[in-house]
Design a protein around this nucleic acid. Structure first.
Lengths: 139, 139
DNA sequence: TTGGTTGCAAACAATTTGCATAAAT
DNA sequence: ATTTATGCAAATTGTTTGCAACCAA
């Protein structure tokens, strides 16, 4: 995955082992639809035998977020979770019973969001929309 | 506002001065569209001459949240902000530079959200939408 | 070489908790 | 009288930072 080298360089970050490991682990998790906290990441790295400090995990995550390589979510109070920045924006529907996550995108909603922001004199930097849902009848 | 006494009792909470003050202050702020952090609330209470401990503010906020009297938001990492549980649902726009929160509602978006959930065989239990925005030049 | 990077420990900020006192029912 | 609440300080939790050693460019 030499492409990751370029991503780091383009972000003005030196290509180091810790950064590559973190990027790769986060990438794998994201493909599984997992959102990892700094601590999650730190533990998984340790389990894989990597000797990366927790402070480094935090620093690197912040740098990746700034470089827009990853996205930070504050779903729960108290800590953040991260996922790779998706190529294409999408919103989430979460089944409250199974925790299954369904991704979707609706152009009309996107359009109106921008319209609303504009009406208030703002431009949208980014946005989040989470629908907490339950299956109709048969659960 | 004797109605607040009942709200507290129905939540199984004793009617105490700190709780009434917090409820009232949060209610006023919410009417102004302000979302307060625990620290904000604590400071405002002190400014009003109230002698309520920060720990009490935190404890009471958690209890109110559990009782669904108020809503907790995690717009920014690191701390929560609260508002009275709104009678009518609305979404939020957060100014990324000032952390100011603007409330809004768009019926068309609401309609489409339900439509989308339905198309997937779900019904919406609850949802959140946060637009992170920045003022268009002339700020 | 040179400046960015890392690990560790100490520092921080937000929030929680133990406990003795005080107030509500 | 009994139960729950409060204030304070100490403790926790998640995250950040100072610094000396270290490594990529």
């Amino acid at each position: 995955m030499a492409s990751q080298n370029r991503e780091l360089k383009e972000a003005g970050l030196k290509v180091t082992a810790p950064r590559l490991k973190i990027l790769s682990m986060l990438s794998d998790a994201s493909e599984q639809g997992d959102h990892l906290s700094a601590e999650d990441l730190y533990q998984r790295l340790r389990d894989t035998g990597e000797d990366i400090g927790l402070a480094t995990v935090y620093r690197v995550l912040t740098q990746f977020e700034t470089a827009e390589l990853i996205i930070r979510h504050n779903f729960e109070a108290g800590y953040s979770v991260f996922e790779m920045a998706p190529d294409h924006h999408h919103d989430h529907m979460v089944d409250v019973d199974t925790n299954e996550v369904i991704e979707f995108i609706d152009e009309e909603i996107e359009r109106r969001q921008h319209l609303i922001a504009e009406q208030h004199g703002y431009e949208i930097i980014d946005h989040t929309m989470v629908l907490r849902v339950r299956k109709k009848d048969g659960a």
